[in-house]
Structures are given as C-alpha cells and as structure tokens.
Design a binder for these strands. Structure first.
Lengths: 217, 217
DNA sequence: CCGGTTTCGCTACGCCTCGTAGCGTAACCA
DNA sequence: TGGTTACGCTACGAGGCGTAGCGAAACCGG
C-alpha cells in the first residue's frame, strides 16, 4: 500500500517516514525550493509553471507532483524558508526592538521572490482552508513568536504594564501583531514605498505614543 | 486607423472616444464586471477564466479582450467598484470616525469577491508597473482620500495638533494610511479573524494612545 | 437615405500548461 | 537477495490562452 495521500513533503512536517525503500532525496527538496524562488523572481506568480521549476531544479516533473499537491503549497514552502532568518535581537529598549524587527521583516519583503509569492498564496488561501493552515503554521506563526517575545521582554524591562488577565493579553497580542505585520506589508507591497530607517522610526513612535502625542518627530 | 492600443476601457478612464461608429455597450461593461465578481466568489483567482466570465456575462470572449488587456486589469476594475461605497460619515469624534471607517472597510474585505481578488492583483503588480498604477488610482487613492479627510477633520476639532510643515504632514499621513489599511487587511485576510466592534475599539485605542498607555481597555 | 466606421457575436486555430499513467531503473533495508 | 520505495522519462487527454477572420449590427455625417 503506497502512502495514502501525497501528504506534506517538505522537511517541516517530517512525520512517520517508512523505513523501507529508497529515501527521498533531501538535495532534491532544496533544489526544488530554490528553483521555485528563482522562477518567482523572473516570472512572478501567474507565469510560474511547475514544468519550468522542475527543469531549473534538474528533477522530473513527476517528482515534483509526488511531493507537493500543487503550485500553491510549493510556493508556500519556498517562501517560508525566507522567514527562517527572522530574529529579534535584544537592543535594550522596546523602541529599538520594534525598529529592528520592522527593518528585518521589511528586508525580507523587499526580495522579489517574497513579494510576488506571499500575496499570491494569501489570495489563494481565501478559498482553500488547508492552504491557509499551511501558511499559518509555516509563515505567520513564526513571525508571531517574535512579537510575543518582544512583548514579554518589554514587560520584564518595565516598559509595558503586565496584562491583567490572560484573555486580554491574547487579544492585545493579536492586535499588536496585525498592526506591525500589516503596516509593514501594506507600506511595502501596496503603497510600494520603501521601509527605511526613517519610516521605521516614525512607525515606532506612532505605535508607542499614539496619535494623541506629537505625530511629527 | 484603428485605436492604437486596446487602451483602458472601463468607464473610469473614458478619455477621447471617437464620434463615429457603433458605440460600446455600457451594459456589457457592467455585465462583465458583475460576472467577474461572481466568478471570483465561486472560483477564486487562479481558477477564474476569461472564457467563463464571458459566458456568464452573455458576451463573446473577443469582446472581453477588446476592452481589457487581460485577467489582471479586469479584476482590478471589478474589485475597484466594490470600494465605491466607502465613505466617512462624521460621527463627532476622531475615535468614532476611525472605528466607523475600519468597520466599513472590513465589511468590504469580508466579501469573498474582494478577498480573493484584491490580494491576487497586488501580487501580480509586483512585476507589472502599469498594473500597480492601475491599482493605485482605482483603489488605493480612493481609500487614502478618506483618511486625509478624517485627519483634517480631527485637526479642525482640535483633537490633533496642526502639522508643523507640509513635508512632515505628508509623511505622517502616509504612515497613518498604511497602518490603518494594513492592519485591517492583515487581520482580515492573513490572520483570518473577524474585524468586529471589539477589534475596532481595541485598534482605535491603540492607534490613539499607543502602547505606552493601558493596552487593555 | 447612404457610405464610412466601429463594435459585436461567432467559429476556429496553434500554443502552452496541467496533472496523471506507465515503465524501467536506482537506492535503501531486512 | 528479495521487497519496497523513489526517480527519470515519455506520452497523453483536457482545457485555457489569446488571436484571426468573417458577416451582421449600430451609429454618424453628409
């Protein structure tokens, strides 16, 4: 009996692998994902074809279909790897931490393979629940972890008050995450304007002090 | 000599139309855009085909290609019409105005034809400058006008200080726009969580007072 | 009323991509 | 060595893309 479903192939979900038979080439996985990003840069989402990706990666097209159900899932995994480098170094203050993570996040979004791939899979996920779940675990949850860490770090420093109850803490946390990630994505992809040091400083000032205080630095 | 380019067809850019010959059917335009939205709901972006749209609209496929260069531009125009209803009623205070526009904006994004279409064309625009410009003039600029109006309204009320110089005013304005629009879009499409009254209130409180004040209401 | 002009519906076409099936071979394990 | 799985390759039907060509319809100026 072969594997019931093509299943999730990439290393991220390496669950029960049978001990018999020829193992899947890990090099092929890496080559396919790299080829996918390369094709995203040159062709964008709509003109990207799986046959072209297979050709670039030096594997057969059938190998590609054995590991990923389709174009959507492949691109999610290819883009997700870009976010592996996202970290949150401790810069001493909440303001500095926010500026730092904003600039790092924006640096990833500035790469064309992320620009053209990310929004496309989000669009597809509106009619595909399993794809949305894949995006959530592979990309979104990873970013969220950073915001959670930065918040509790600021609370240890005394820059933010402790949360009164866990329910309110969760809601406040989700809100902050959407504001930070959404603002950077919108600035970068929709407004198509650069997220540079000036913008990061202005954004941090707004997030910390709000509109009521002096909006201009 | 026929028209040099297929040109921008929809009513939005109705420039120099020749006075001779059979006029283009305005009813066909409306039917095509409505059919596009209907197909977006049922099929989403990737499975939407122009042949299917033509069939739904009751026009020939060639008619469709005579008016729009391709799928991208057609969907931009179809989605843009959804934002026509976006307004900013005066609710007496800056906080109430923000909550109102957030909820109205979210109501549009909750419609499946907007969800699946908007992100897709934004993704495509990363490699197509003319498409990005089309999105900017048809969709983004329209939203921006509302934020500009709300800001000056709040300044007349004395809720916000006047801007020191025009350059800082522009930068502050662009920032606010990206934060508001980006946060709502991210919450709605990426986090896939509802933008309800509670979220709108929490977001407004954060935007006005910042993280420094009490984050929980 | 009529000739010029443009749009429209329809059919047909070559090109490409999709996703799968089938086969022989290669790699790994007990 | 035999069993099992992955791989490369070829081939295929299905379907969308975007265009060309045709005759008919609609509108305008003379």
């Amino acid at each position: 009996m072969p594997r019931p479903t093509p299943a999730s192939p990439a290393g991220r979900a390496g669950a029960g692998r049978p001990r018999n038979g020829r193992p899947r080439s890990a090099a092929a996985d890496a080559a396919i994902l790299a080829a996918t990003r390369e094709a995203l840069v040159e062709l964008g989402w709509s003109r990207l074809t799986l046959g072209d990706v297979a050709l670039r990666a030096g594997v057969a097209k059938t190998t590609l279909y054995r590991r990923w159900p389709g174009k959507n899932e492949l691109v999610v995994d290819a883009v997700a790897e870009l976010f592996d480098e996202l970290e949150l170094p401790d810069r001493g203050s909440l303001a500095a931490d926010i500026e730092g993570v904003v600039l790092r996040f924006a640096a990833i979004l500035a790469r064309p393979e992320a620009r053209s791939g990310l929004m496309a899979v989000v669009a597809e996920s509106t009619l595909d629940d399993s794809l949305r779940e894949r995006i959530r675990t592979s990309i979104v949850e990873r970013q969220k972890r950073l915001v959670r860490e930065g918040k509790s770090r600021a609370q240890r420093r005394g820059e933010l008050p402790p949360d009164p109850d866990p329910e309110a803490a969760d809601r406040s946390f989700d809100l902050i995450f959407d504001v930070v990630a959404g603002s950077v994505v919108h600035r970068s992809l929709v407004s198509a304007a650069p997220v540079d040091a000036t913008w990061a400083r202005d954004f941090t000032a707004l997030l910390l002090a709000g509109l009521g205080s002096a909006p201009a630095r």
